[in-house]
């Protein structure tokens, strides 16, 4: 038990520290690298909770794909973030005020926290016992049956995002020669090769 607690504090501590560094690092690339560190440690926390599928998917999707693109963009952009931060102090009072209001609201909310008496009854699907099925299996079962509607809409949203990205950025450039592999493969010998009988000492 103590090892588990220690591991938890290790992961949680690194996650929080990395999160702070994401915001405070001067170099944007370092920020992204700290973000990745935070993701990895969150995956560790998921593993501790027994949600191994979520942990792995977090690594595959966020670290393996999303953050790579982030890193790409940040590395290529070459923005001087220090300059961008110049106005930061100017907005600190109002930002701080909003933060404070939200904090007060949250405290109020937590102060008034009561679990609704019939909340347990309304939980849609009780969790199956862990020894009966792995959480990958359980997630799949619920995602493709009960929540198939939401799953499909999410798919459509991603499709729209893809169409939108292409619409807004793809430009057909003039004067670019493209390789047409089908045409190359379709080409026949007669079109490409011409056999000439070269007379001795004559040249072509």
């Amino acid at each position: 038990m103590i090892v588990q607690a220690l591991t938890f504090y290790l992961f949680a501590g690194i996650t929080v520290a990395a999160g702070v560094m994401v915001v405070s690092a001067r170099n944007p690339v370092h920020s992204v690298l700290f973000l990745i560190l935070a993701f990895l440690n969150s995956a560790g926390l998921f593993v501790l909770m027994g949600a191994e599928f979520l942990a792995m998917v977090l690594v595959v999707v966020y670290v393996g794909a999303v953050a790579v693109l982030f890193l790409f963009v940040v590395m290529m952009l070459d923005i001087n973030f220090v300059e961008l931060r110049q106005g930061f102090l100017q907005y600190l009072p109002i930002g701080g005020l909003i933060g404070l209001i939200l904090l007060v609201e949250l405290v109020l909310v937590i102060g008034a926290w009561v679990v609704a008496p019939d909340a347990a009854a309304t939980i849609a699907e009780p969790m199956p016992a862990p020894e009966r099925m792995t959480n990958t299996h359980a997630l799949g079962l619920i995602l493709y049956t009960r929540y198939v509607y939401l799953f499909q809409i999410a798919g459509l949203i991603l499709l729209v995002a893809m169409v939108g990205a292409i619409v807004l950025t793809l430009r057909g450039r003039e004067g670019v020669r493209k390789q047409r592999i089908a045409a190359q493969v379709r080409g026949r010998r007669e079109e490409r090769v011409e056999l000439k009988k070269v007379p001795t000492r004559g040249g072509i």
Binding site: E52, F53, M56, V57, V59, V60, V63, G64, T134, N135, T136
Partner: peptide
Amino acid sequence: NVGILYLFA
């Protein structure tokens, strides 16, 4: 349980 996902990650 999720060995293959681990390797993929």
